[in-house]
Design a protein around this nucleic acid. Structure first.
Length: 425
RNA sequence: GGAGGAUUUGCCUAGCGGCCGAAGGCGUUGGUCUUGAAAACCAAAGUGGCGAGAGCCACCGUGGGUUCGAAUCCCACAUCCUCCGCCA
């Protein structure tokens, strides 16, 4: 949610942000006039209400004709107050509606444009040369079948398209990754959390997923509840309506939860395998920090993501996502993309967003510090999204015989296992 | 699912339709006292909005209603607790 003071003092900056995102800059002007209308309505109501209170104090003291006259006057005033209050409510609602529709103001330096206009920040590791290794790499679907790790046919039979079973070592692999991710997060002071996947509209709205992202969110109409697409929703909602002690910041949480995505509008994309699925598990990092620390925290989250992928010995690159490809809450976003050998390209495995004070304003999360009470900044970053990380591990560490070498950093979490072997029969 | 009870300012609690934004205790902060601390005493201290400011207005779980006037009366909903039924 936009800071109305910024909107009033520097509307052009907000318009520029909207243009960079490819969104409507005139929303800014609609907001400005709604803000003005609301302030006028508030003043009217305040004045009338003050008058009513004053009058009300005289009534118990008056008697006889005086009292009757006052009552008559008060009765009339009561109608005016009621009308003014209704007008104020309307003005409030209109302003709120417009405020919720406006996306976060992007950070200076974010590349303009859409999905393809990202800026490449760095490349880590080198894609493996399978020609030199003397064999044609199998894709994760094939490997998953050989290893008895992924069952897509039965996933489709039971759950439909984009559903899967992780079986045998596949299931163990996910649990190992979860443990490895939690171990790293804990090492850096994150509090491990297992969070609700089913949340109320406020949490979903507050985190900004009911705007443009709404079509990808599962809604349970009978109960008016939502299935989260990431534990970010539950972790941001955790401190909803709270005022946090600035001295206790940063607060860092590592959430593990199921994530659900409708994947509307991605028909025909990534239909093979488990790159794009309706349900998966994820370990997500989430930070509450003072606004002035947000950019530094964003860099830290990125470093922690890089550390995790590097430990798994997967080649990847880091991109600075362009404004038009940001979620509505994000002021800046960095993606880590892992090399997928059989696709011959880098694919997103983690993503970290600086939401500045945007979500905090929507969720009414503030901090109390030397400067008084003010909104704080929230940031999130993927530590490990299971299916895609499994894809990257299987494809990058496969051997000619269909086995997969377990990267040493992961072995302790797999009972010391060094290799996943094809199952026979 | 059924029957009761509860929800007040950081916490615990008091609160007659008007003098209640709300008493008291605890905790917090500042001060006095003390070599220092504790204790005691004095004082300060909610959140939001409007306004240049003095100040004004809103907020007693949420939303409605009754009334000139609601923390207080009425209705609905939410959450929590207890009991019954069902169940992982």
């Amino acid at each position: 949610m936009i800071d109305l003071r910024l909107l009033r003092t520097d509307p052009e900056r907000v318009r520029a942000s909207q243009r960079a995102r490819g969104e409507d800059p005139t929303l800014v002007d609609a907001l400005l006039s709604a803000d003005e209308a609301r302030r006028a309505a508030v003043s009217r109501f305040d004045a009338l209400r003050g008058e009513q209170k004053l009058l009300g104090k005289q009534i118990p003291k008056a008697a006889g004709d005086d009292r009757a006259a006052l009552l008559e006057q008060a009765k009339k005033l009561a109608d005016d107050v009621k009308a003014a209050e209704a007008e104020q409510h309307e003005a409030d609602a209109e302003l709120k509606r417009l405020q919720l529709a406006l996306s976060n103001v992007v950070v200076d330096g974010v590349p303009e444009g859409g999905e393809d206009d990202f800026v490449l920040l760095e490349t880590v590791g080198t894609p493996r040369d399978f020609t030199a290794d003397g064999f044609e790499p199998r894709d994760h679907v094939e490997l998953g079948k050989l290893l008895g790790a992924i069952d897509l046919e039965r996933g489709a039979k039971v759950g439909g398209a984009r559903q899967y079973y992780l079986t045998g070592v596949g299931a163990l692999l996910e649990i190992a990754l979860m443990n490895m991710a939690m171990a790293q997060a804990t090492k850096y002071g994150f509090t491990p959390m297992i969070t609700p996947s089913l949340v109320k509209p406020e949490a979903m709205e507050g985190t900004g997923f009911l705007g443009q992202a709404a079509e990808n969110v599962y809604h349970l109409a009978d109960d008016d509840m939502y299935l989260v697409g990431t534990s970010e929703v539950a972790l941001a909602g955790y401190h909803m309506d709270e005022i946090l002690d600035a001295g206790k910041l940063p607060l860092r949480y590592a959430g593990y939860s199921s994530c659900y995505r409708r994947e509307a509008g991605s028909y025909g994309k990534d239909t093979r395998g488990i790159i794009r699925v309706h349900q998966f598990e994820k370990v997500e990092m989430f930070s509450y920090v003072a606004p002035e620390d947000a950019e530094a925290e964003h860099q830290r989250l990125l470093e922690w993501e890089k550390e995790f992928i590097t430990a798994l010995e997967i080649p990847f690159r880091v991109i600075d996502v362009a404004a038009g490809d940001l979620g509505s809450s994000a002021a800046r976003k960095f993606d880590c993309e892992a090399w997928i050998p059989t696709q011959g390209k880098y694919r997103e495995v983690t993503s970290t967003s600086n939401c500045t004070e945007f979500q905090a304003r929507r969720l009414q999360i503030r901090m109390r510090g030397a400067a008084g009470v003010q909104p704080l900044a929230t940031l999130n970053g993927t530590l490990c999204a299971m299916p895609r990380m499994i894809v990257a591990i299987l494809e990058n560490h496969q051997n000619a015989d269909g086995s997969v070498t377990v990267p040493p950093a992961l072995r302790p979490y797999l009972g010391g296992r060094e290799k996943l072997e094809p199952v026979t029969g």
